[in-house]
Amino acid sequence: MIEYLISAEFYQIMLFWLYSTILIGAALAVVTMRNSIYSALFLILCFFSAAALWMLLEAEFLALTLVLVYVGAVMVLFLFVIMMLDIKIKPKSGMSNYTKVGLLVALLMGIEMVMLLGKKLVGVLPQDDLVKHVQGHSNVKEVATSLYMKYTLPFELASVVLLVAIIAAILLTLRRRDDYNIVNPESQVHVKAKDRMRVVKMDAERGNYIGGEE
């Protein structure tokens, strides 16, 4: 018993339960918080806990990428937008119609997932054994092999689709306005000192100092 309590497996399982509890708690807080800033911050906590779970799966590259992309970039922009908005903290109220519809959808989705997992995937799901790779196993290499050797074409296609989406999004929001004066940065950068000012060379003059010897 004491052997099990000090074993690495035990701590791994404990960590799994800890992080999944935080993950589910934070996910609930995202939808129940009445202040949207708190919701966003709890969403960050969600991503963090999910990254920690991936760490436990020994997928350190994916976990760090999750933190880098979602926490480091996407959520920053989210917070950015939320802070610019005029936030009104909703007063406590009873169950609104949205909540009722939401609960119905959640219930349906829950039933669907139970049906799928319980019926079809029960033999495929891993039991309670932990993921363990041999010493020197590189998750980075594994990701690279599947992305750039196994699934090269789909991966490249997906990136092209994303690029098109980025360009489309930029074009949708890009508009030229004629009603304000914008200075072309090119002309600003290329400005020379002699365009703006004239240096005058002149001899020093003798001034008349009041009340003193020179």
Partner: peptide, 11 residues
Amino acid sequence: DINAGLVYILA
């Protein structure tokens, strides 16, 4: 001394 040290730093 982790494998993905550079990504960790960026994150």
